[in-house]
Amino acid sequence: MKSQSKDKFLTFAVTILLMLCCILLAPISTASASPSSTVYQQRLIHSPDGIGKFYMNREIAKVMGHTGASWLERPSREAEEQPSKIVSALNLKPDDVVADIGAGTGYMSFRIARVLTKGKVLAVDIQPEMLDIIKFLKKEKNITNVQPVLATLTNPNLPAESVDLALMVDAYHEFEYPREIIEGIIRGLKPGGRIVLVEYRGENPFILIKALHKMTQKQVRKEMQAVGLVWRETKNLLPQQHLMIFEKPSV
Rank of each mutant, 00 (worst) to 15 (best):
A211P: 04
P156L: 01
C21N: 07
P159S: 13
A61W: 08
W71Y: 13
I28S: 03
L18P: 10
S88Q: 13
R194L: 14
K210M: 02
Q219M: 13
Q42I: 11
R77I: 01
I245D: 00
K8I: 01
N57W: 10
T117M: 06
A171T: 15
I28T: 13
I126V: 15
K53M: 13
K218E: 15
T38S: 13
K8Y: 07
R232V: 10
V115A: 11
I182N: 03
E129S: 04
K2M: 07
P94E: 14
S32T: 11
P148R: 01
K6A: 06
A79T: 11
M244L: 11
T15K: 01
T38L: 06
V115Q: 14
L17C: 09
H46F: 05
Q41E: 15
F110C: 07
E161Q: 14
K222E: 15
K222H: 07
H242S: 08
A160R: 12
L165T: 14
G68L: 05
G102S: 06
F175S: 05
A160S: 14
T117W: 07
W71D: 11
A123Q: 05
Q82M: 11
M56S: 10
K85S: 04
E161M: 10
L229G: 08
R232C: 01
V227S: 03
K53S: 09
V220Y: 02
P205D: 13
I16Y: 00
Y55T: 12
F9L: 15
K235G: 00
G192N: 09
P178H: 08
A61F: 09
V121M: 04
I195Y: 02
Q241P: 09
L237P: 00
S70C: 03
V198K: 12
A69S: 13
I134T: 05
L238M: 09
P159M: 08
R111S: 05
L208M: 12
I195L: 14
D164I: 00
D95K: 15
H46V: 08
